[in-house]
């Protein structure tokens, strides 16, 4: 087993608040010995903090004996991982063909107009980040939307507004 405490040099990594640094180390520790540990660790970091801070990269790289470039390359390759904080809620709208055939293009336009953001942007109140997604596997109930991991089917512009309003009020 690798040592539970990190060398002091790594703990002094600038930019990460103490709580965030602790969260990153807690994500690394139980997973560092897994075969192919990097993706499980990145998931755990993002689950804890909502994103993978740039200053987390050296900590992860050191634990897995990788270069910072290796880790950065993986974070930036996968659409799911984000390097910047996002809004309190994530709204993903499916852009794929089945949803297109059932009105997703109009739904996208409606969502962007009512939220006042484009893809990957966050509303000014910090409540909602809008993301495109290519298939949620709910193709028999298109168009599909996922809000904070909850799936919704047959979404119309009207029901979209209702869902977003409920999400905001539950914040």
């Amino acid at each position: 087993m690798p040592p539970a405490t990190q060398p002091a040099m790594i703990l002094k990594e600038p930019g990460l608040a103490p709580d965030a640094r602790r969260a990153v180390l807690d994500a690394i520790e139980p997973r560092r010995a897994l075969p192919g540990a990097l993706l499980p660790i990145l998931h755990a970091v993002q689950d804890a903090l909502g994103y993978v801070p740039r200053d987390a990269v050296p900590l992860i790289a050191n634990a897995l004996n990788l270069s910072r470039a290796d880790v950065h390359g993986v974070v930036s390759f996968y659409h799911y991982f984000r390097s910047e904080p996002c809004g309190r809620h994530i709204v993903q709208i499916c852009r794929a063909e089945s949803c297109q055939a059932m009105g997703a293009v109009a739904l996208e336009a409606h969502a962007k107009a009512t939220l006042g953001v484009d893809w990957h942007e966050t509303t000014r109140d910090g409540a909602v980040t809008l993301e495109p997604v290519y298939c949620l596997g709910n193709c028999a109930l298109s168009p599909a939307v996922m809000i904070d991991g909850d799936l919704h089917g047959r979404v119309t512009p009207q029901s979209f507004d209702t869902l977003v309003a409920a999400t905001r009020s539950g914040a």
Partner: peptide
């Protein structure tokens, strides 16, 4: 069970293996 990270290309078998090994797909 391992979780992907939103890359369509990882449905290609060799990309999937790269991803499982902790690399870019």
């Amino acid at each position: 069970a391992r979780l992907g990270a939103g890359a369509y290309i990882c449905g290609e078998e060799t990309s999937l293996l790269e991803s499982l090994e902790g690399r870019r797909g």
